[in-house]
Design a protein around this nucleic acid. Sequence first.
DNA 1: TGATTTGGTGAGTAAACACTTACTAACCTC
DNA 2: GAGGTTAGTAAGTGTTTACTCACCAAATCA
Lengths: 221, 221
Amino acid sequence: MPAQPMPRPRATAHRAPRHERLAGIIEAASSLFASNGFKGTTTREIAKAAGISEALLFKHFPTKRALYAAILAEKSPVSQLVAAVEEAAAKRDDERVFTLIASYRIKRMSDPTLLRLLLYSALEGHELSDMFFRNQHRTVYEYVAGYIQRRIKEGAFREVDPLLAARAFIGMIVYHRLVHELFQVPMHRSPEDTVATYVALFLDGIRTKTSTIENVRRLRL
Amino acid sequence: MPAQPMPRPRATAHRAPRHERLAGIIEAASSLFASNGFKGTTTREIAKAAGISEALLFKHFPTKRALYAAILAEKSPVSQLVAAVEEAAAKRDDERVFTLIASYRIKRMSDPTLLRLLLYSALEGHELSDMFFRNQHRTVYEYVAGYIQRRIKEGAFREVDPLLAARAFIGMIVYHRLVHELFQVPMHRSPEDTVATYVALFLDGIRTKTSTIENVRRLRL
DNA sequence: TGATTTGGTGAGTAAACACTTACTAACCTC
DNA sequence: GAGGTTAGTAAGTGTTTACTCACCAAATCA
């Protein structure tokens, strides 16, 4: 009598609803893509990290690239920062405007995977990397340029190309993170000190020296 | 009569001496690694680009990683810049010191693959990426910090953390290239204008306002 | 001239890869 | 509780990958 091939019951993981699984996959994949890049991450690893089978992964996302695209598309919001800055901007509180922006990037940096994800997507030339850059950097960068332009017109800042000046400021901050996160160069100062130094350097560089008047007063007092 | 398997003569490429082949391989691989990263580049592509067989590639480099390491190890020199700057530094010509450094990164950028290679190696966590970073950035960065510290002691620059100030300056420049090369944001100004703007911003930000005295004189004239 | 070294190849190989197939089991109605 | 839909899997498939093997021929040397 031939042994009937008794089909052993298949291990069923958890049976989560669709949106929960999707979120789980995206989170797992997100961190893997951030540390190893697109080519450096295998679908098997992703499935394992998400606690499911590879087959199920492909039921949710038709291709590995589609999953990657979904991740990039999801990581958009940066508008909360602009909203917070708006108030300070209305009061022309330069210190506060630039400190808020710098702190956001240096201290909070909501999602530590963002920078790596952004760099990888740009280097690997993903089709969505442009949009990703736009959402993550360019809006802030253009907002800052707009603010600088306004302050120039008001005579508070001296005549410079606002786009270049904005890029200079963002550059200081982003490079700081980059060096720190990618090359493990330690932060030898507290985040507050660091932010304060960058903001002071920048504002002293761009402000018209109206303070001259005050200095004169002080000198003659 | 069984057809004797007549061994057709093997195509022999060129028979170059060792060092020539090595150089050819390194050049081909270098540009491929820079555009696609380590994982994104196949040994077959490299061999094809170098015009040789894969087997020969592995005669010269035992593994793909070894080839990659050889490339990173080779791309070192940055000392020429420091030498050129030294002269201006001796004369305390701040404008010239910082303009030279900025121009080097923004205009010349000897090897356009360098930035991509550096970022890829850091992201992919290659063991040599630290050394690579050290050779390419850290020396310049530490040199600048040293110069700033000297100028602070001389009273020409105001009291700031020299390391942070140096990083701020390098940050402006590197971010500019990054944005331009990785995200295709166009340079809307000539390289000269760009460099001049960054240098002016930075120097105005870090210099002590001895000009106050002069401004006072001017006001009372 | 003949042996040795050096530069070269075509045709593999085992493992890893993205993605498929064919199926099962839980849940949700009516 | 039958019938459909949704969530899940084990076990593939064909291809690509880094790397090897066995062999060949042009230089160089004895």
